[in-house]
Amino acid sequence: MAPEPASPDMFDFAASGRRVLEVETRGLEAIAARIDGAFSAACRLLLGGRGRVVCTGMGKSGHIARKIAATFASTGTPAFYVHPGEAGHGDLGMITDADVVLALSYSGETDELLMLLPVLKRQGNQVIAMTGRADSTLASTADIHLDVSVPAEACPLDLAPTASTTAALALGDALAVALLEARGFTADDFARSHPAGTLGRRLLLHITDVMHSGEGVPRVRAEASLSEALLEMSRKHLGITAVVDDDDRLLGLYTDGDLRRTLDDAAIDLRATRIAEVMTRTPKSIGSDALAVEAAQMMEAHKINALLVVDDDGRVVGALNIHDLLRARVV
């Protein structure tokens, strides 16, 4: 008879969860101890390949293979996943003779994978196998075998792939990162393959992509009155105005915060006072070739909400505030 299930009120879920992680940790430690010449050979083969990496596997191994392919692709190693069952019905045409095949099967005896091996060999593909059995058909047929065997599955029945799939996933990550480092893959490279992600926006978006330019930049001459400067600030809705000379070179800045301080001075006449008398004479500014994230960092460091953008000659060419960066999802 099957054992009676424990009452939810009596079962120690936390202890069960810790046991799973302990079992999977031992599995990862076993894998780490076996990263050796075969791992290095696999990296050299993948790095020197003329084509792509084709990852394949059935069931849970297929899910892991799909994730490994995605990790490869996003870190500079062109890769994709092919379902071995579909491969036998036409998808083999996706695999060229220049591709390296990474095949995952813990048993090493998955029929759908074994069926593909003769075809791949005839085509000239080199095969890297990840299995838990070094004496399996897949392991012995592959050009390189990576042993992902674990002492035990986390499943108490030793049936559901748990520690073994975690080990295979981690070894796939190890391959991808080793290749990334060998290639000198940079954060900019990563951003180019993730343009819609947060990192992509932070690394690819430039000041010119988010700033206000042309007539959208609030600016007045130094001889303008304070009231004229306030009208310009109101029209342009950025909470600031640049103060420039006749060549548009930056002389100073006036902000909403400056206005509050000005109004505290009862002696100030808005119409008679020139903006040059109350402006900030050494305002923070940023170059137009800078990244938008640099503007965000500058605003945070100096506790300001807006920046003027200047060219190499100090001419004002743009302006932006924190709301522009928020809309661009840079911050």
Results as ranks from 00 to 15, higher is better:
His206Glu: 10
Val127Phe: 06
Ala142Trp: 11
Leu270Ser: 07
Gly214Arg: 11
Gly200Pro: 06
Arg327Lys: 15
Ala168Gly: 04
Asp269Leu: 09
Asp143Asn: 15
Thr166Gly: 00
Val100Tyr: 11
Ala15Cys: 03
Leu307Phe: 01
Thr273Gly: 07
Asp99Cys: 11
Ala196His: 05
Val330Thr: 01
Ile68Asp: 03
Ala65Val: 08
Ala15Gly: 14
Gly214Gln: 05
Leu320Glu: 13
Leu325Gly: 06
Leu104Ser: 04
Arg183Phe: 09
Ala328Cys: 08
Glu86His: 11
His212Leu: 09
Asp247Cys: 10
Leu47Val: 00
Met279Asp: 01
Asp311Leu: 00
Pro118Tyr: 06
Ala38Cys: 07
Val316Gly: 11
Gly200Leu: 03
Met130Asn: 03
Thr280Val: 10
Ala154Ser: 01
Arg221Met: 12
Leu113Gly: 04
Met130Thr: 00
Asp135Gln: 14
Leu146Phe: 06
Leu102Asp: 09
Glu4Pro: 00
Thr71Ala: 12
Ile35Arg: 14
Val82His: 10
Lys284Pro: 00
Thr75Ser: 13
Arg34Cys: 05
Ser213Thr: 15
Ser105Val: 04
Ala168Cys: 10
Ala30Glu: 12
Pro218Asn: 07
Val293Asp: 12
Pro195His: 10
Ala292Asn: 09
Ser164Pro: 01
Arg281Ile: 08
Leu28Thr: 02
Leu326Met: 13
Ala196Lys: 05
Ala266Pro: 04
Asp209Leu: 00
Gly124Asp: 03
Leu47Glu: 14
Arg235Met: 09
Ser149Arg: 03
Leu250Ser: 01
Ala301Arg: 15
Asp269Gln: 12
Asp258Arg: 00
Val150Leu: 06
Arg249Ile: 00
Leu203Cys: 01
Arg66Asp: 04
Asp324Asn: 14
Asn305His: 11
Ala163Val: 08
Leu326Ile: 14
Leu320Thr: 12
His302Leu: 10
Gly51Gln: 08
Ser213Pro: 02
Ile304Asp: 05
Tyr81His: 13
Asp12Lys: 04
Asp265Cys: 08
Met10Val: 13
Ser105Asn: 05
Arg274Val: 03
Asp247Ala: 14
Leu175Asp: 03
Val20Lys: 04
Phe190Ala: 04
Val119Arg: 08
Thr255Asn: 02
Ala73Pro: 05
Ala319Lys: 07
Asp248Tyr: 01
Ala242Thr: 07
Gly88Gln: 13
Arg44Trp: 00
Pro195Gln: 10
Ser225Val: 00
Pro283Gln: 03
Ser40Met: 08
Gly93Phe: 02
Ser140Thr: 15
Gly93Cys: 01
Ala70Cys: 10
Leu117Ala: 08
